[in-house]
């Protein structure tokens, strides 16, 4: 029996030496508090969809004041990707406001100098119908950011999916997917960040899941917005696992 025990222990030791401990192969999941700190002083830029995220974040902050604390939002209803790519204001269309003044995105970034800017735009442009143009606008945003606020990291967020009702005239579901793929490719080429928030919001047919829609088109309800937050936390975890970022309190 004694021999058997020794043999078993030797076997365990051998296995351990071949397969190192889990902590060395897979990094641990950071706490939500740590992951949220990735977004400190970041700015979220967008249209009415991101405006909903702003409301959601402020609502959560009433329960937990540290929830995405210090994150800023630059949103305008019906704000276009094209408008964001311009050096100047666009007359007759919605522009972003900063400190009460309408300003182009690049000028705001120059004043704010945020460490990271997360951008979700393109729905108002129906950008899936003009993918090449859309990617051109995205690249122009990168160029302007590099010129006006070179230390700001630009991270694009995927377009959120749409409902079958929104696709009655045209299959925007496929067009949105094609645009997201092109956006992801461009981000990889240009070294920009890309957060996929679309995948987890889809149903089995690739539409916006009805449980996450607030208006039966493309706006999200609190359940959908929670999944968006989850995607952001996962993105921060990925950055940590890639060794690109670590929370300040992390040894």
């Amino acid at each position: 029996m004694k021999k058997l025990t020794v043999l078993f222990m030797l076997l365990v030791l051998a296995v351990c030496s071949v397969f190192p401990a889990g902590s060395e192969t897979a990094m641990e999941r950071l706490t939500d508090e740590q992951l949220v700190s990735y977004y400190n002083n970041s700015v979220f830029v967008g249209d009415s969809i991101t405006a909903q995220l702003l409301v959601y974040v402020r609502e959560q902050q009433q329960k937990d004041s540290h929830f995405f604390e210090g994150v800023k939002f630059l949103t305008a209803q019906s704000y276009f990707l094209y408008t964001a790519s311009r050096k100047n204001l666009r007359s007759g269309a919605a522009n972003l406001k900063y400190r009460g003044r309408e300003m182009p995105l690049c000028a705001i970034l120059k004043e704010m100098k945020p460490p990271k800017a997360f951008i979700l735009l393109g729905v108002n442009d129906y950008i899936g119908e003009q993918i090449e143009k859309g990617i051109g606008y995205d690249e122009r945003i990168l160029d302007l950011a590099a010129e006006y606020s070179p230390d700001t990291e630009i991270i694009f967020e995927s377009l959120t999916p749409v409902t079958p009702a929104f696709c009655r005239k045209k299959d925007y579901r496929t067009l949105w997917d094609e645009y997201n793929k092109a956006l992801k490719d461009m981000c990889e080429t240009r070294g920009a960040g890309y957060v996929d928030i679309a995948s987890r919001l889809k149903d089995e047919d690739g539409y916006l899941h009805k449980d996450y829609s607030s208006d039966g088109k493309y706006h999200l309800n609190p359940k959908g917005l929670k999944l968006w937050i989850d995607a952001l936390l996962d993105y921060a975890q990925t950055q940590y696992e890639l060794g690109l970022w670590a929370p300040e309190d992390h040894v």
Partner: peptide, 15 residues
Amino acid sequence: LVAYTADDLTDLMGI
């Protein structure tokens, strides 16, 4: 109704 912050008042309206 959701309460926005003093920062929002400054950023959005310049108050």
